[in-house]
Simulated scan of single mutants.
Amino acid sequence: MNFPSRPERLGGFRLIRRNSGAHVIVVGNEKGGAGKSTVALHLAIALLRMGQRVGIIDLDLRQRSTGRYLQNRRDWMSHHGIELPMPQEGRVEPSQLRHLDEAEAEEDVRFQAVFSELKAENDFIVIDAPGADTHYSRLAHAVADTILTPVNDSFIDFDLLAEIDARTFEVGRPSVYSEMVWECRKKRAGRDKVSIDWVVMRNRMSQLDARNKRRVGEGLKRLSERIGFRLAPGFAERVIYRELFPLGLTLLDLTEDGSTVAFSMSHVAARQELRELLSVLRLPELADSKIPF
């Protein structure tokens, strides 16, 4: 197999060559449990149902929640004899080399091969980044057109973005993930003369008003003005998301023949949250498209 040429290094940080092609959405932060896989799958299926060609990469190479979700979806389709929209799945494997530079060089080549193939054949690529700082995660963030960061309504998740004063709740300096995103944005702008759009969404939100919820919201608003991300409405905490995973279904599949999940007003509200997220993302490729769900 002939691999693409090695990516260039800028200040010790690698940038994969993007060229033209699909719009890349990276769903990422460096914390598990924020709902990244749920968001990634719902975005991918929503784009497919809008007539877009979609590729998807799961970079959580240990847990592979997105990969398991897709396998559950294939199993559901096989069992019911029904076709559902499916993204084109790209798969990368971790390097087993022990020398760090050699391992990263091997992962550079593997990522670029999968990325280039998906980019040539799709309108969008959705990348589910791991809840950790990995080489693959940095490669993915550096090729993003849009970075979507789900955070739970807690100061544990907030700490991933910035430090906060425990007494006054004043926002301090940006934390490790924000610094990594800033580095990616700066170097992409320098090389490709484009800006990565960074959107933070509050996910798994309680439907009850609470002082902590308000404080997190106020802190995110102040931080967004300081380091330049946009805020998006997120998904409320709903049992349905946990029920859908083993079936491989999304909210947009519940009216399909064979679905055993009763469609309710709660699901209508959840679909509206997904529509609002798509609107806030302002994906230029969808500028003239109507949301059909």
Rank of each mutant, 00 (worst) to 15 (best):
V199S: 08
G55S: 04
K213H: 10
A142D: 12
H141N: 09
R211S: 03
L148G: 05
G217L: 04
D157E: 11
A46E: 00
E117V: 11
M205V: 15
T255L: 13
E102Y: 06
R91T: 15
E117C: 05
R53H: 12
R17T: 13
E276A: 04
R222T: 08
V39I: 15
N72G: 05
L278Q: 11
L100A: 09
E104L: 07
E285F: 03
A40T: 00
S289H: 09
E102R: 13
L97R: 14
R222Q: 11
F115K: 06
R53F: 02
W182M: 14
S206A: 12
D133A: 11
F235S: 03
Q63F: 07
S137G: 15
L10R: 13
L160H: 09
S178V: 07
T66C: 11
E106D: 15
G172T: 00
F115W: 09
A144Q: 01
A189L: 15
F124M: 10
R74F: 02
P174M: 13
A22L: 12
Q88E: 12
L278R: 13
R173P: 05
N2M: 05
P85R: 10
R242T: 13
G228I: 01
E225N: 07
Y241G: 00
S289W: 00
D197T: 15
E89P: 01
V92A: 03
P233R: 14
R14Y: 02
K290T: 04
L15P: 01
A140I: 00
S95A: 10
G28N: 03
